[in-house]
Structure formats: C-alpha cells, structure tokens
Design a binder for these strands. Sequence first.
DNA 1: TTAGGGTTAG
Length: 442
Amino acid sequence: MRHLKQIHAHIIRNGLSNDPVLVTKLISLSSSHSIDYSTLIFNQIQSPTTFTYNIMIRSCTNNAAPHDALLLYLIMLHRGIPPDKFTFPFVIKACIALDSLAIETGRAVHALAVKTGFSTDIYLQNTLMDLYLKFGLLDCGRAVFDKMRVRSVVSWTTMVAGLVASGELEAAIEVFEAMPVRNVVSWTAMINGYVRNGQSYGAFELFRRMQIEGVGPNEFTLVGLLLACTELGSLTLGRWIHEFACKNGFEMNVFLGTALIDMYSKCGSVEDAVKVFEEMPERSIATWNSMITSLGVHGHGNEAVTLFTKMDKVNARPDAITFVGVLCACVNACMVHEGLEFFKVMTELCNIVPSFEHYRYIFELLGRAGMWHEAYELAENIPRNKLDVCVWRALLRVCETHDKAELGKVAYERIVELHSLDDSMPPNQIQLQHHCFEREVE
DNA sequence: TTAGGGTTAG
C-alpha cells in the first residue's frame, strides 16, 4: 500500500490523474487493502465512464462491500452512464454476495440486460445461473441454461455445482454425465456432490474415473476427498491422500492444510494434525480454529489455550468459532475460571456477540463452578431476539444434567413465556413441550 | 475489466 501511494503521488505530479488505464489500475490494486482509498480515487475522476464504474463495482464486491457495488450501479444508471456486457456480470456477482433479499435486484438487473440486448452474453448467462441456483430458484437457473445457444464447460459446471448445493444429487449426476467436456473443476464439483450427500465411496470412485479419463486432480479436488475421509473416519485413506499430495508436489495452501488438520483430528490422530499445523507456511483463521478445537476435544485443554494465546503474537484475530473451540476445551479440561475469563475477553474485548454454542459451554462452566445465579443473570440479560429461547433451552439442559430442578423450572417457564409471544409457534407444540417437561420433573 | 469447484463450530 505504501508503494502504491508513492506511485499514485507520481501519477498526480505528472498530471496523469485522469488517465483511465492508470486510475482503474490504481483502484483495483488498492481495493484489496483499502476500499476507502479506492473510493477516494474513484470520486476524484472528473468524468467516470462505464469502464471505471465496472472496475469500481467489481472492487467493491471482491472486497466485502457488495452493497456499495449495487449502490454504484444505481448511481451509474441515474447518471445516464450506460452499462455494458461487463457491468451485468459484476452486478449479479454483487447480488450473489448479498443475502437472498438481493434476488429482486438480481431479477431487475436480468430484465435490464434483456432490454439492452446483453442477455445472450455467455458470461452473464453463467453468472445468472449461479445466482438463481445459489438462491434455490432451480427452475429459473434451469431456464437460463436451457435457453443458452452456446454452453461452455463453465455453464455445465455451474449447473452441476448448483444442483449439488441444493441436494439434488441425482439431477446433478444426470447433467454431469451429459457434459460434452469435463475438466478438473467439473470433476471436483461432482466429487463434492457425492461427499455432501454422504456418499463418500462414490466420491472415491469418481476420483478413480477422473484419473482414468486423463484429468489430474488439484488442491481443490484433494480437499473434497479429505472431507470424504473425514466422513468415513478413515485415517488410512486420509494418510493416502496426504502422501498423494506430497508425492505430486501439491502446494500446502491454507485450504488443503486445514482440511488435513481436520481430517487427522476427526480420524483420531491429533499428533499428525499438530505436525501439519506446524509445517504450514501460511494459516487462516479456519486453520487456527481447527487446530484449537482439535486439541480441545482430544483433552489437551492446556495446549488449546496455549495455542490460542499464540494467535495474538502473529496478529491472528480470533472469531466466534475460535471461542467455541476455546470454551469447549475449557469444559473438557475442567478449566472453569479460565473459560469464564475467555468469555469475558470475547464479549468485552473482541466485541463478539455470543451464540447459542457459547452459551451452552458457558452455562456448563458456570454450573460446574456452582455459579447458578450468574448463569441465571446471564440468560436474563439477553435482549429479546431469536436467540433467547435457545439460550434458555441451553440453560434448561445444563440444569437437567446437574439436577438443578428449581432453576430448570424457571428456564422452562421462560421458554413457554417466550413461545407464547411468538406467533410462529403453534400452540400444540407448546403443549407438547409442557408435557415433556412435566414428565422429566416427575 | 467479465463466468464454474475448496477449509474451521453446532
């Protein structure tokens, strides 16, 4: 970023700040470090063109600001700057990055693309398919696919991946088998389809077929296969994939490394997980989380906590999942006071809003420490939202295991009370829960 | 300047 700013200064001093090529290059290069800086450059352009808008829209989406991307698109239309064939895929990608509420915007963009004559662009069609399929509108995705006059391997793969994500394994297989050409991405998408649908042997069968047909796997493929090993609980197969990766010179990137750690941990070899972790040249938050969780569930609570404290030294910021792992480790290792301290760090220092899982572990810790009043206070102070019923349930659960009938009854009454405020809960379900509780109390 | 596949909790 420092070098980029120096270059930017030279550009200004040499009177080149209106050169569209230089300016757009600056925008896209700076966006991954500071979207604010990119916006600053963009706002200084005297007469922005379709091209500069496209670049700015793409930069926003690629850097966690899809909402701004849509806003820019609207401003662009408002200013009368015409979108082109590049604009539409970028805007649809912004919709995909948002939640499914953006589907209406997506449809409107689709409509405008039809009106302006860009709807037959293969890049747009592929992106639209992706949008509809990812938001569960399988018929719409299919309709785009069926209307395409030319389909590339990307079109077919998008269809396969979309069906797989919706659990439509049979339909995905049908499309996959009908593909005229398959590349490593297509094979990987299909392998993951088998894994996600609990058919891990099918995934390995496909891996064999892929190699017979002369397509080599890459890191993505191996990650899918490692998930299959994890699902099967097969340390032997997992080791084989690991050896395959080493023998074939695969780069130990964060995804492959993390999948290996997770596989070793869940297949019972925490030693191998640690070995992989220590040898990784680069780690993501998922890598840390996987390793901490692994140590925690294997009864190495102290090691998990030590590793957690190391995160700070390498500037890795813990997230909500990290604390689920740490709290779980504390529960398993009976580190009551440490756990309570971490919960404090999480909420007060890291500003992480506790989820149901955090409450579950924290109630367990408080229960073990006999701090029932604190547990009650904690549940009582949760603002009214969707989570509070779950939290009282978590407390009820802990009360049950610790034979804490009195507080359990309070928790139970709160659950019934909150349900009665919730119209979406049918009365017979409340009755049923009431019945269950009475029986448990007896 | 554009399109598709990947890791962590529960």
